[in-house]
Measured scan of single mutants.
Amino acid sequence: MEVRTIKVFTTVDNINLHTQVVDMSMTYGQQFGPTYLDGADVTKIKPHNSHEGKTFYVLPNDDTLRVEAFEYYHTTDPSFLGRYMSALNHTKKWKYPQVNGLTSIKWADNNCYLATALLTLQQIELKFNPPALQDAYYRARAGEAANFCALILAYCNKTVGELGDVRETMSYLFQHANLDSCKRVLNVVCKTCGQQQTTLKGVEAVMYMGTLSYEQFKKGVQIPCTCGKQATKYLVQQESPFVMMSAPPAQYELKHGTFTCASEYTGNYQCGHYKHITSKETLYCIDGALLTKSSEYKGPITDVFYKENSYTTTIK
């Protein structure tokens, strides 16, 4: 009895394709271990004539594949690729409408935090270190965002349907971005203890939790000093293409032309909904596939993004 075979390709990165001759009487799992086709788990399936010449994702289970996976995804987590594939199996079914010149995501599976993050990423200057993220990001900007969303979920250790947080998501993504040249110098002034300067680099240099107003941050924000008295913390120097200011959701007025974009969060910790506000020729609110415009805006804002380049204080 002759062994019926077909020729397929296996890959971990969709760049390096490895030619395989597979036995049609055995499952993919018996031949390769966990195997995925377009995100779908085909591990328990036997090869079919229609699979001839198709590319299958496999887990990096030998040295060659491990090197290829690390170079593309910059992670050695053995569960990463499987999590990416199972997320992709959902995100490829989502709709990605162009809204006001940006790629958004039609609401499904509690994905409003991903839509808000995706919209924000198209408006701030950011370059990702893992080629996987950078490639998928370019495709997302062009309207094909399924891979990018699935990668975000995998890097953030999230599953489809789980509630997510924009600030946490951005923080994970910033860790995989090139923020080497970003720098922030802060000064804390206390009447009792004097003053202390701190220099922050990388992710810490672009994120701040405690106030939404970048102007206020430049002037000074009140913080408790270690001595128990009130101290003032203010920005001395900022070198970065953008800054992200966050605070627990509270009524906040966004003035046209003073910011790049913002995240609105309605609801409580267990259950809520994100919308995205962007400042173009007027203010726009993007909620999944829905767009509304207004000249002014007041609502429960939790993150505001500002364009920056270089700032030095005039406070002496």
Rank of each mutant, 00 (worst) to 15 (best):
T159Q: 15
K298I: 15
K280A: 12
L121G: 02
N147R: 11
M209K: 13
T35K: 04
P241W: 05
Q216S: 09
R167D: 01
C149Q: 01
L291Q: 11
F174W: 04
P249Q: 00
K229P: 01
S171C: 12
S104C: 09
Q31G: 08
H18F: 08
L133C: 03
L200Q: 15
L59M: 13
N111W: 04
V99L: 12
A69M: 09
V221A: 05
Y137K: 03
Q197Y: 09
V21R: 14
L291F: 11
W94H: 03
V58Y: 06
D287T: 00
D23T: 15
Y57M: 11
S294Q: 14
L151A: 03
T64Y: 10
Y284G: 05
P300S: 15
V67Q: 14
I315F: 08
E125F: 04
A142I: 12
Y208E: 10
L119M: 06
Y234E: 05
L17F: 15
S50W: 11
G33A: 05
D165T: 02
A140D: 00
K46N: 08
A289R: 04
M85R: 09
T198Y: 10
G143T: 04
K46D: 15
D41H: 09
A289H: 14
L133M: 08
L65S: 11
Q238N: 01
D165V: 03
E71H: 08
P300T: 08
A146Q: 09
T35N: 05
C271V: 09
T278A: 14
L212W: 03
M245D: 00
R4L: 11
Y252L: 07
F217I: 13
S86L: 09
V67N: 14
G194I: 04
E162G: 05
S181H: 14
A40V: 12
S294V: 15
L186R: 02
T75V: 13
K293V: 14
V22D: 05
K106E: 06
A250T: 12
E71N: 15
T64I: 09
A150G: 06
D38H: 10
K255I: 13
L173A: 04
F148K: 03
T103A: 06
T302F: 00
D38P: 08
K191Q: 15
F259K: 01
G164K: 01
N61I: 07
G257M: 06
F80W: 06
L179D: 01
F305H: 00
L65M: 08
Q123K: 03
K201V: 09
T314C: 05
L81R: 06
A205V: 01
Y155W: 02
G299C: 01
G194F: 04
C271R: 08
C156Q: 06
Q134A: 14
V8Q: 05
V3L: 14
F305S: 00
G220Y: 02
N49H: 13
Q230H: 09
Q175V: 07
H90K: 15
Q230C: 06
T260I: 15
I286H: 04
K158Y: 04
L121V: 13
V221G: 03
I15Y: 07
V8S: 06
A132H: 03
Y96G: 05
G288Q: 00
Y96D: 01
K298Q: 15
C261L: 00
L126E: 01
T282W: 08
T43I: 07
S294G: 08
C112S: 03
V304D: 00
L290S: 14
M209L: 09
V22I: 09
T198G: 05
G53D: 10
I286P: 00
G228N: 04
T314H: 09
S171Q: 11
S86Y: 08
V188I: 12
A154H: 04
Y252C: 10
Y96Q: 02
E2Y: 11
Y138R: 14
K7Y: 15
K316T: 15
Y306I: 02
E71D: 10
K218T: 06
F217Q: 03
A150R: 02
E52S: 12
M207C: 14
T35W: 06
I6N: 06
N110R: 02
Y138H: 13
E308A: 08
E296Q: 13
Y311D: 07
V206Q: 01
A69N: 07
Q196Y: 13
Y113M: 03
E296D: 15
H276T: 02
T198K: 15
V22H: 05
L283E: 02
D287I: 00
T27E: 15
K201I: 13
Q216K: 10
